[in-house]
């Protein structure tokens, strides 16, 4: 539980970060809150020789209003995001999900961008970003580019971020008051990761469902959308919820561990999705 030796550098801007990463290539790693990276180092599962600390890069911190969107700096801590007034007003689902990440200590160190860049399908933020159709702003040696959440997650702990890329900020749409949301995080002890999570964002009008977006946590090697359920719910009456949610696990091949074998995870996905949709509709 003692990491191998490494160098540490703290950068003051995104450009400096990109430069430092360019200099060290594969040997370098971005360090944000360190709440996923440091455990990997301590278990000697990762051996970067340089850590580039982006924790004090001002332009990567805080939340700003950008018309139809909110822009969340990648290095904003979970706790700051959770209590941010803009987030609470325009996208309260984020506050709600982030409040279920780990415990207060974790939320004071860990960052919103780190939780996404780490690409852990058991994390709560990847499914959130996916369901929100968020856009990630990535800075690299070739400049900045936007990547849609649906294109970002490649495989277990793997994203499109290259060795020289920095996730700068995350753009999320403002959601009107016709959107309801609910996140069902299923775990055995309060501070643990989700065994399965289901996030429902539902827009309703006149007793029927206009649109539903459902993000699934820990149901595969990447975060997933429950597309079949979303389609079955779109434009449908609330009577179909149970049937629609029975399709929530379609196309998933969830991992197996001591807490859950695959069939149990799929069962949970169905039950939790139904509960999330019902709660999102105010049920």
């Amino acid at each position: 539980m003692i990491p191998a030796a490494f160098d540490y550098t703290r950068v003051g801007s995104v450009d400096e970060a990109v430069q430092a990463l360019g200099q060290h290539g594969e040997d370098a790693k971005v360090l944000a809150g360190g709440h996923s990276l440091i455990p990997l180092l301590r278990l000697r599962l990762a051996f970067p020789s340089v850590l580039v600390d982006v924790g004090r890069v001002d332009e990567m911190r805080g939340v700003r209003d950008d018309g139809d969107h909110l822009v969340i700096g990648a290095a904003t801590t979970h706790d700051e995001v959770m209590h941010d007034d803009l987030v609470r007003q325009h996208c309260p689902v984020i506050s709600d999900v982030v409040s279920q990440v780990g415990d207060p200590q974790v939320r004071h160190r860990g960052t919103f961008g780190g939780g996404i860049a780490h690409g852990d399908p058991a994390g709560d933020l990847p499914a959130l970003a996916l369901a929100l159709d968020a856009t990630f702003v990535i800075a690299g040696s070739g400049g900045r580019r936007d990547v849609a959440a649906s294109d970002f997650f490649v495989d277990y702990l793997q994203t499109v971020l290259g060795a020289e890329d920095v996730l700068v900020e995350i753009k999320v749409p403002k959601l009107g008051s016709d959107w309801g949301h609910n996140y069902q995080k299923f775990n055995r002890v309060a501070q643990a990761w989700a065994i399965v999570g289901s996030l429902a964002l539902v827009r309703r009008s006149d007793g029927s469902i206009d649109e539903a977006r459902i993000g699934l946590t820990h149901m595969g090697s990447v975060p997933l959308r429950a597309s079949a359920t979303e389609q079955a719910l779109a434009g449908a009456s609330t009577d179909v919820i149970a049937d629609a949610c029975d399709q929530a696990a379609e196309g998933t091949s969830p991992p197996e561990d001591l807490n859950a074998r695959a069939d149990y995870r799929q069962h949970l996905a169905r039950v939790l999705t139904r509960r999330a949709v019902e709660h999102a509709l105010g049920g």
Partner: peptide, 24 residues
């Protein structure tokens, strides 16, 4: 405490071994 058939402790860290806390 769970061991696999080869005798490895599968619940090898406090992340995998569920010690309940006050909220639980």
């Amino acid at each position: 405490a769970v061991y696999d058939d080869a005798g490895n402790l599968t619940t090898g860290s406090i992340v995998d071994y569920y010690v309940p806390g006050a909220p639980d």
